[in-house]
Structures are given as C-alpha cells and as structure tokens.
Design a protein around this nucleic acid. Structure first.
Length: 561
RNA sequence: UGGGAUAUCGCCAAGCGGUAAGGCAACGGGUUUUGAUCCCGUCAUGCGGAGGUUCGAAUCCUCCUAUCCCAGCCA
C-alpha cells in the first residue's frame, strides 16, 4: 500500500517519459490518450529486466488512465515457440498486470505488412535485392566507410513486385533474395543503409503455420504494429535509439492509421547475476541450474519459485529510475524490497535446520505442553500452537561449548548458562554429551519453571533467544538453501560459468519444523524465525513430502568476532 | 576512427540558472522473548576534467576525458 500511492495521478512526473506524456496530454496530442505495449519476442523466458519494462509500460498506462497491450513480436519463427508464449502470459499475469483486450501478435498483421511492402515498392521506396548475405555485408560498408548501392537498387517496381510475390510463393531459396528499403547507403546510421524488410524463411510459424515463407524484420514490423494498435508511446530500451530514424521513416512513408513515437530508457542491470538470454539459456541447457524456473534464476518464474512476491518485484521496479544511464543496480537494493514485503506479510514459524537434541531433564517424559505464539509479532495474523516436550531440537549453531564467551556478544547456549526458548521456557544447559569422535550429540538441560511469558529472576537472565522444535511432535522437512548464483559482482563475459557460486544450492534433508508447517499451501512464504524466509515449493511441497525453498536470509547485523 | 547516447556520495538517483532531495549499503545509539522489525543519528563546500559567460553554474558555452550502443537476411 504505502509504496504504490505515489504512482497514482496528480503526482509530479517521476521520469522523463512521464514528463513527455504530461506535455503531450497538455497539448492535446492523441486526444489525450495514452496507449503503451509490452512487446516480447517469444524466444525465451522473461527475467527481472523485462519486469522493469513491464512495470513501466503497464504502470504508465495505469497512471494516465490509458491501456497497455501485450503483443508478441513474433517475426522470426526460427527462434520462437508456443512454450514461451504461454510462459510469458503466465508471468505477466503473476506480476498482477492485465493487458487491454486480447493478446496481440505481430503475425496478426502479416497481410497488412505485405500490402505495405508493395506500397513502398510502387512508390520507389523499396526493391528486391539478389545480393547474397556476404555480398550485402560487403556493400553495406563499415561504420567509418560509406556503403555502396546494390546493383539491384534501380530495378523496376514491376519487377520487384513480381519477385516479392514469387518470394512469397516459395519460388526462391532462403538467403537468395530479400526486400530492402531504398534509403541511403552512405548514412552514418547503419540502420539506414537500405535495411532489409523481408527475408525468406521456409519454416512453419507457431501462430501462422505454413502460410508464410517470408517474414518481416523487426524494423519493418515494430512501428507498424504500434501504429495499427494505436500505441501512442512506444517505450523500448536504449539499444534501439539508432533504430528510431528508421521507425519514423516507415511511419512517414506508409499510410498507417496513427503516428506512434518511440522513446528509449536504460535497461536494468543487477550485479551477481546475468540477464542475457544467451547466458540464461546456456545455464539451463548445460544443466548448471534446474530449468528456467530454478529458484536461482533471475527469471520471473525463477523468482516466483524462490518465494519473491510479485509485490516485492514490482516495488523494486518502481524504485528504479527510468533514465538513459546504464548503471548496475546493487542486488542488495532488490533484496531490501524482498525482505520489506516478506517481513510485513509472512507468518512466523520455527524450523530447525541443523538439529541438535536437547533433553529437558525436569520435564516429564510423554507429557506435552501446548505453547501459543503469534503468527506475526506486529500485525494481527492469528496464532499457532507449539507442542513442547521433554526432547526438543535446537540448531547446532546455537550451541557452543565455550562458556567463557562474552555474555553480551555471544547470545547462544553455552554450558551452565541460560537461554530463552522462543515462545516457551528459559532453560539452562547442564551437561554436554558426546560420541566417541568427540562430536556433541545431545545437551541435557533444565527449564526454569514459570518462565513462559514471564521473565526469570535477574540472576537467571537468558543470554538470548533461540528457536526450537519438539523432537517427538515436530515434522521432518526438506529445505533447499539457495544463495546467489554467482560469487562475483560481474561474471566474466567470456567464461561466466567459471564464476558460478559453488554453494548456491544446498539441500538439507533433516530439518525439523513445527507441526502445522507441513499443511502449508504451496507458494506460501513463512519467516522461519532467526533463519530467514522460506517458501513451500510450488511443485514439490505437500503433506507427505514437505519441501521449502529458502527465499532469503534475515538481515544479519551481528558482526562476528 | 563515423554516428547515436551517458557522466551528481560505495550503488541507484532527484535536480531543468538562485546556492546538492530521496532510497540502498555502511557506521553509531535506543526498544525488543527473532543478533529481525521499529525508532533516532552520521554519511557530497561537492556534481568526469579544464576554461569561459553570469551578481550567481551540477544546470548555459567551448575544448578535453571516460563508458555504453550500432557494421544479423536477430529482436
């Protein structure tokens, strides 16, 4: 609630795109309407970078009472698949956005594009070129070296029209001919050196099947898609800035129904991860991670499985500047929003990750005392019951044999000293039992009567508080502990796999949780007190195989030593 | 090297000629039956550099410097 108020109306513009929009509205441009679109190519899964674009496009439409379309830019069948179409729709919905009307596809407009291609030819603005890809590249020149005209550039409109139709009929091989715009082979903008409009691809398409064997390029499609849909502000990332003159050239030279404008903003980069589609795909294909929705992946489906809430992802994206700088946002900034949301909304529970048995010698065997604890320390979220028994588990890390450690600095169980069991008694460690190898296997302790909900006398003041679970009434659960996928801020570009964090995934099979936890609905996030946030796995969790993924640890300001 | 963009605290960033917002991180301190949360406090005489215009410049001008993007029949 608190974070989103700012994005309703009447607030001053927060970024340069909103400034432009407000000016457009003031000048009555587009009849005061604002229409945006999120236009992914269905060739991979959406990631955190896309989330920023989604939040910007949908958020902008929302802010100005406009609409935002979801449109698949499916102009290259050789890279695309229905699997990605479905996953992308699911991700956008999970984030909580609703697109205007039906989902759109660039392929819905292929007939129109073809007619417009003929229009350009007739007006002397396009021609069929027979240069091979290698020759075309040579003719195009170099950034500092002007290109030269294709020998087919002055071919008659009639001939080009005929050739284009025959390309469409499948008469020619892939790569043998293309349709090009006739602009300027000497332009300092490479995109204007007679860009390719259509190329031959004898492949079936996930939406149009085998209807087409020629497909438009990005540049000959995107602006026209926007124009057809009445998009007013076409927001894309910085690398498309060089394409804007071409975008405008098509809008000017074609009888399009509206005149959209393109604006570019800086793409989101975060440290300790990668977001290039190529690298993410490699991680999946080489089995470095367990699929696109592995909880370590920066994909939306990965973050979802990790336990990050849609609201946290959105709050993070909204906190980001929309500007033209290309910086790298600190992962800590993202983690802040994840914790902020989870702290506010997740129920508390206790789960011991590395069990160490404690026997309360002055508590009768077989007896069960039910403790009650609030589900949330600050918010009213109900309460839970915790069975307290003679044998309990505490975390191995909460015990230390060294009783000389400073009481103030070391808030853990040490022999002869007192500790508070969260929501239960204060206990005192009396005896340490070890096995032959010297490893501590059990602690024998005594409880201080009357300390449930009450403080003990000053001389019995506990060093600190620790979580616990009944050894006889708790449930054994599986916990998957995740950490950052990469151990360095900026994974090496050439060999990024070498920078994988070897400890990014650890599976713990002997964890003990308070009983109710096994009944949790999949995708529910809990705060395991003193440990962090954990989500019941979306796919693998159920009563018989309780499985939790570590979402993120609690902030830890305890400086060791 | 031709073109397009960008440079403000460790990171993100506001600022649009009137004397450097905010968030993250960090560091102090308080509360606390989570070393969490919460609360309080500290954190740029400085805005990539050098000149100039101006009563006044992060904001305007000039020249440098650094970084990113463009030479797919990818998007």
């Amino acid at each position: 609630m608190s974070n989103n108020d700012a994005s309703t109306t009447n607030t001053p513009p927060t970024n340069f795109i909103h400034q432009i929009i407000e000016q457009d509205i003031q000048e009555g441009r587009n009849g005061g309407k604002v229409v945006t679109r999120f236009p992914p190519e269905p060739n991979g899964y959406l990631h955190i970078g896309h989330a920023k674009s989604i939040c910007l496009n949908f958020g902008t439409a929302e802010k100005y009472n406009g609409e935002c379309n979801l449109r698949f830019d499916d102009t290259n069948p050789s890279k695309e698949d229905q699997e990605y179409v479905d996953a992308i729709k699911e991700d956008v919905q999970w984030l909580g956005f609703k697109w205007a009307g039906e989902v759109r596809y660039a392929s819905d407009y292929f007939d129109q594009f073809y007619a417009w291609a003929q229009h350009l030819i007739r007006n002397g603005n396009a021609y069929v070129c027979d240069l091979s890809p290698e020759e075309a590249s040579e003719y195009r020149g170099w950034a500092t070296k002007p290109g030269k005209n294709s020998p087919f550039r002055e071919r008659s409109a009639e001939e080009s029209l005929d050739l284009l139709e025959r390309m469409k009929q499948g008469e020619f091989e892939e790569g043998s001919r293309v349709l090009r715009a006739k602009i300027d082979m000497t332009s300092s903008n490479m995109n204007l050196r007679d860009p390719i409009l259509y190329r031959i691809r004898k492949q079936s398409h996930h939406q149009t099947g085998d209807k087409w064997c020629i497909y438009p390029n990005y540049d000959f499609a995107h602006g026209q898609e926007d124009a057809i849909e009445g998009v007013t502000h076409s927001i894309c990332t910085l690398e498309f800035a060089d394409h804007r003159p071409l975008y405008e050239w098509f809008i000017e030279n074609l009888p399009v129904p509206s005149k959209p404008r393109q604006y570019e903003f800086g793409r989101l980069n975060i440290n300790y991860t990668v977001t290039s589609k190529r690298k993410l795909k490699q991680l999946v294909d080489e089995g470095v991670v367990n699929g696109w929705n592995d909880p370590r992946m920066p994909t939306i489906s990965g973050m979802r499985r990790r336990g990050y809430s849609a609201q946290a992802v959105r709050n993070f994206c909204d906190s980001l500047a929309v500007a033209k700088t290309d910086g790298v946002v600190d992962m800590a900034q993202f983690e802040f929003f994840v914790r902020e949301d989870l702290n506010e909304n997740s129920a508390r529970a206790m789960c011991v990750l590395n069990p160490l048995k404690v026997v309360i010698t002055n508590f009768p065997e077989g007896e069960v005392e039910m403790m009650t604890a609030p589900a949330h320390p600050q918010k009213e979220m109900g309460s839970r019951s915790l069975p307290f028994t003679r044998e309990i588990y505490i975390d191995r890390n909460d015990f230390n044999e060294d009783s000389t450690l400073s009481r103030k600095k070391f808030k853990k169980l040490v022999p002869g000293d007192f500790m508070r069991l969260r929501s239960a008694y204060v206990i005192k460690a009396e005896e340490v039992i070890k096995d032959d190898s010297g490893e501590v296997t059990e602690i024998r302790a005594t409880l201080v009567p009357g300390t449930v909900g009450e403080n003990p006398p000053a001389e019995m003041k506990p060093r600190g508080v620790m979580h616990w679970v009944s050894a006889t009434h708790g449930k054994q659960v599986k916990v998957r502990v995740y950490d950052r996928l990469f151990s360095v801020e900026k994974p090496n570009d050439d060999d990024f796999l070498a920078d994988i964090n070897p400890d990014s995934y650890v599976e713990l099979n002997n964890c003990w949780a308070e009983p109710e936890l096994v009944n949790a609905e999949p995708e529910t996030v809990f705060q395991f007190e003193r440990e962090g946030y954990f989500v019941a796995d979306r796919y693998d969790h159920d009563v018989t195989t309780p499985t939790f993924n570590k979402t993120i640890g609690l902030k830890d300001s305890w400086v060791k030593k």
